[in-house]
Computed example of a mutant assay.
Amino acid sequence: MDTDELGRLLPRELMTARGPVVVRTARPGDLAAVERMHHRCSTDTVFRRYFSAVPAISPTLQARLLETRLALVAEVGHEVVGLGHLADHQGQPVELALLVEDAWQRYGVGLALAEAALDVADAWGIDRVVTYSLQTSTGAHALMRRLRSGALHPQFHQGEDGLVQTVLPLTGPTLRTLSA
């Protein structure tokens, strides 16, 4: 996908009950705002995203998060309140990962980040993405069911390790119509 096509998809604005949120591609200059967002997240929120009990994310990992195949931020003013990624892992499907700070959860920020990432994935010709969550992450599972107005029909698979892999198929005539 060229820069013009990405520019057609992003940025986009979401109007929430708390005010406007802009979803855009991340830039290297966002690192400090991403670090502040991680510090505003509860230990539970960080654990649900990274599956680690470590209360803080290292600056090195935070910088790597902005270097994935696609890194998106949800921004209010100059503060990042959400982060979304499409990440490639050798030999694995492209992974969609989301993190929304606690104060902005349940306002549609995660849904907006996910929809933007899926639109880019479609433009790149990706036929499916996967997400990973905890079995108890019912909010994340509900979000996956709401994507593309419920048209994706996610497939949930629980592994022996307790993680749930959700497969989101992005191909098919109905899905192409929705993203066009």
Rank of each mutant, 00 (worst) to 15 (best):
A151H: 13
G108H: 07
L175R: 15
L96S: 01
D102W: 05
R128V: 01
G139K: 08
G159N: 07
E67V: 06
T136P: 00
G84S: 01
L31Y: 00
A121N: 03
V76E: 07
S58G: 12
A103N: 10
R146T: 05
G19T: 09
E13N: 08
Y50P: 07
C41R: 03
D122I: 11
A32M: 01
R146W: 02
V23R: 09
S149L: 13
T131G: 13
V54P: 00
W124R: 13
A87Y: 05
R64A: 14
R36L: 04
A112R: 05
H85E: 09
E35Y: 02
V22K: 11
D88P: 07
L99C: 12
L10S: 02
A32C: 01
S52K: 09
G77M: 08
Q165L: 06
D44G: 13
T25I: 08
R146P: 01
E67D: 14
P59D: 04
D102Q: 11
A53C: 10
Q165A: 08
D4Q: 14
G29N: 06
L96Q: 03
G84L: 01
A116K: 05
R27W: 09
A71S: 15
Q62F: 01
L86M: 05
D127Q: 08
D4M: 12
Q90M: 12
L134Q: 09
D119C: 10
P55H: 09
H38Y: 14
A32S: 02
G19Y: 07
F47W: 11
V23F: 06
R146V: 00
L178F: 14
G84P: 02
A71C: 10
Q90E: 15
T131A: 12
S137A: 15
T136W: 10
A56S: 15
A140Y: 04
M37R: 11
R176V: 11
E13Q: 13
V129T: 05
L143R: 03
V73Q: 04
Q90I: 11
D127S: 13
E115I: 11
L96Y: 00
A112S: 05
D102C: 09
V54H: 10
V21S: 10
M144H: 12
E75K: 06
L66E: 10
R36S: 07
R36Q: 07
H157M: 13
M144N: 14
A123W: 01
M1V: 14
V109E: 06
E35C: 02
L9E: 08
H85Y: 02
L143H: 03
T138S: 13
T174F: 06
A116W: 02
R64F: 07
V109R: 08
V164N: 12
R8Y: 10
F156Q: 11
P173V: 03
G19C: 09
R12S: 09
D127K: 07
A33R: 05
A87H: 12
D161M: 13
T174A: 15
E101R: 03
V129Y: 02
D122Q: 14
